[in-house]
C-alpha cells in the first residue's frame, strides 16, 4: 500500500510538472531571464503550488498522524549556515545553466535523450559524492 502511494503521488507530481511547463527547460530559462525577455508564467506555478500546499498542510498537521505511517517525519534541521547557502547557490548555477531541476529532469528523462540521461547520471554522481563525504 505504501509503495503504491509513492508511485501514485509520483504520477500526480509528474502530471503537475508537465501541465505547468516545468518540463520545458527553455521556458524555465525564460522565467529566470528577468533581465532579458522575462516570461513570468512559472511564478504562477510556484504561487499556486505554495498556496495549495500551505492550505493542505494546515489541515493535515491538525491530525495526530498520517494515514499510512505512525507519525509525521518532518525536517528538523533549522540552521541557516554556509553549507545550506553554498549548496543552494551551486544548485542554482546548475539549474540556470541548462534549465533542469531534479523533478522535471526525472520526468523528462523518459524521452531517453542523450542530454537528459547525461544530466541525470551526473546528478546521481553528485548525490553519491556528497554521500561519500558524509
Amino acid at each position: 500500500m505504501k509503495i503504491l502511494s509513492y508511485f501514485f503521488i509520483g504520477i500526480v507530481f509528474g502530471v503537475g510538472l508537465i501541465l505547468s511547463g516545468m518540463t520545458l527547460p527553455l521556458k524555465v530559462l525564460g522565467f529566470l531571464d528577468i533581465f532579458g525577455n522575462w516570461d513570468p508564467t512559472l511564478a504562477f506555478v510556484m504561487g499556486a503550488a505554495v498556496i495549495t500546499t500551505t492550505a493542505g498542510y494546515q489541515l493535515i498537521l491538525r491530525r495526530s498522524s498520517p494515514i499510512l505511517e505512525n507519525s509525521f517525519s518532518l525536517p528538523t534541521v533549522r540552521a541557516i549556515d554556509t553549507k545550506l547557502l553554498l549548496g543552494a547557490c551551486m544548485f542554482g548555477m546548475g539549474w540556470g545553466l541548462v534549465g533542469f531541476c531534479p523533478g522535471p529532469v526525472l520526468t523528462a528523462v523518459s524521452s531517453l535523450t542523450a542530454g537528459t540521461i547525461t544530466f541525470v547520471c551526473a546528478m546521481f554522481a553528485g548525490f553519491w559524492v556528497v554521500g561519500l563525504a558524509k
Binding site: C89, W95, F119, W128
Partner: peptide, 8 residues
C-alpha cells in the same frame, strides 16, 4: 550542470 545540481 547535473553535477552542480546533485552536489548542491
Amino acid at each position: 550542470a547535473g553535477l552542480l545540481v546533485g552536489i548542491g
